[in-house]
């Protein structure tokens, strides 16, 4: 039991990741696929953020009397990854807009040609 509780942050990560993954695969609507992709990426952000935590550590701001700090590097890293994620979402949504214009639908099952399925 303590194994589960002690690593609760990872369980959340795994749960989110699987949810996101499932949505990407199962969703019929392209926008929902993008949403799933976002959830999927967010889980990884959570992972990075949680591993920066050092037990008993404080926020990484130099202050007197504090000797243990949490690790700020993963947070910085994940900022970059979030930017990448946002850019991906933007490109993805832009594609969805153009697909809507070209095909008249964003529902995968409404495409006429089976080869176009995503």
């Amino acid at each position: 039991m303590s194994f589960i509780v002690d690593h609760y942050n990872y369980w959340i990560v795994v749960l989110l990741m699987m949810m996101g993954f499932y949505v990407v695969i199962a969703a019929n609507n392209l926008v929902k696929k993008i949403v799933g992709l976002n959830i999927f990426q967010t889980s990884v952000f959570m992972m990075y953020i949680s591993i920066g935590k050092v037990n008993g550590g404080s926020a990484p701001i130099a202050a007197e009397g504090i000797t243990t700090y949490s690790n700020p590097l993963p947070h910085v890293l994940i900022l970059t990854a979030i930017v990448v994620g946002v850019a991906t979402t933007a490109v993805g949504l832009a594609l969805v807009v153009r697909i809507k214009r070209a095909y008249g639908t964003v529902e995968e099952n409404e495409f006429e040609d089976k080869e176009d399925l995503i």
Partner: peptide, 10 residues
């Protein structure tokens, strides 16, 4: 090319 790009993106 749009659906191809979308698939590639995902």
């Amino acid at each position: 090319c749009l659906t191809a790009a979308f698939r590639y993106l995902v």
